[in-house]
Design a protein around this nucleic acid. Structure first.
Lengths: 242, 242
DNA sequence: CGAAAGGTTGACACGTGTCAAAGTGGGTGG
DNA sequence: CCACCCACTTTGACACGTGTCAACCTTTCG
């Protein structure tokens, strides 16, 4: 069978997507599921280093990540960048664009990626028809608000070691939910990007990695990290609970 | 007329509320407006220092502030508090509760306040009926995401003076949109609460106020602030544009 | 193979935190 | 009504964590 002349073969509907439980609500019957496939208009490939969207660009769609890894960031006029998040398969990006009909951050692929394009008009229309989808959309937005609350806590109150511990625990937990290891991970971002997200300089990120490594808490070799003592990391993140 | 025996007199419907344009969508006809009044179930008074809701509490409603002033905050297990926002009349709080059906932050009145209680079930039901309300709810949530993005930028990249300048400019701009002065304001929060929001200690907040005052940029006397040179503040906040 | 990008480490600087003391103002009870 | 008290604010001296600058190392990729 020649896939090239059957492009529809590539179209993986939500109803048949193994990430469905991550980006779609559960509890649908088959008929509803078919209707729900209409949320996704197309798919789009984004090469490593390319922009999915950028600040100021017209907002039309949300994007569900099928494969790959993204960072989102905002910048000041004088060129300072703040990474606002790292997103992986099953997560939805683009919510920032709704308020002003223009995107308010940049989304860059940190590896070759594949996203489902969900025109927001479709999302809203189907949300009116399916309360469970409506609730799902509200939860996704609320989850993002809560996530950002905890980043504010991290940036406002925590020290370098706590920030990096929280970051590693969060990453490995999300990867584990996707079937990856609980203890090993390969970072898709640079020290500078980690630092930007965590409000510290790249040298401080590097030093903190080294310190964790010297303390026997993790093994680090460049982008590869193995968590040797998860409890020690948790203790650093939350010194009170132990 | 004895208001006490006509409690319904106190019920101010959205259709007759002068804050409508802040917390409700525009472009309704009168009939729709009447239906929309159903969003608000009741009103609730919150005394200065009292909680409107607190972390862990069951989520049922969003709250639109009619009068007064709130802070929202999250805390770590070891007692550190991060103020996540200050909210004034016309703004909606409680969005953090949607994702988990439980509130994820605390909301405390910083002065005697009055809120419209909007059961979220009503909001969702009417949203399905009125696309313009649906869009409005989405925008409110998206606006909060964008706001938090810029706080992340502030906490991650800016120095004390820039943070306080941004804070003052933001406050005075929101107050001005509500008919107050562009140049004078009375802070409803302590130095410690400002510091928590901006990721700095209360002493640093106080010193930075003093420095602005010495530089002739503002007049400060305790909670009272007058902005003498708004352009100087803007220049500190964004040194590039000038 | 060479160059560029990313990562590590060291020495030092500096902004903000910490600790302490004194000043100010608003609320409350006698 | 006034005095006291307590919460809040200001200011100073010093400490410390992280930033800055620089040199060198490692890996990737054309």
């Amino acid at each position: 069978m020649n896939l090239a002349i059957h492009p529809e073969t590539f179209k993986v509907a939500c109803s048949g997507c193994n990430l469905r439980e991550l980006c779609m609500p559960i509890g649908f019957n088959l008929d509803d599921m078919k209707r729900l496939d209409e949320v996704v208009a197309t798919r789009r490939r984004v090469k490593q280093g390319d922009l999915l969207f950028s600040s100021g660009e017209q907002f039309t769609s949300l994007y569900a990540i099928r494969t790959g890894f993204f960072k989102t960031s905002v910048s000041t006029d004088d060129g300072r960048e703040q990474v606002t998040g790292f997103q992986m398969a099953g997560e939805v990006i683009g919510l920032d664009g709704i308020v002003s009909d223009h995107h308010n951050c940049n989304a860059v692929a940190l590896e070759d990626s594949d996203v489902c394009v969900m025109p927001f008009a479709n999302v809203e229309e189907l949300s009116r028809e399916f309360p469970v989808l409506q609730r799902h959309v509200h939860k996704i937005m609320s989850r993002e608000i809560v996530r950002e609350n905890s980043i504010m806590m991290l940036l406002g109150n925590m020290r370098a070691e706590e920030r990096l511990a929280a970051f590693l625990l969060n990453l490995v937990q999300r990867l584990h939910a996707r079937g990856f290891s609980q203890s090993e991970l390969v970072l898709r971002m640079t020290r500078e990007e980690i630092g930007s997200y965590l409000g510290m300089k790249l040298e401080t990120v590097s030093r903190t990695f080294s310190k964790f490594s010297e303390d026997g808490i993790i093994d680090v070799k460049q982008r590869y990290v193995r968590i040797v003592q998860p409890d020690a990391l948790k203790k650093i993140f939350n010194p009170d609970v132990c």
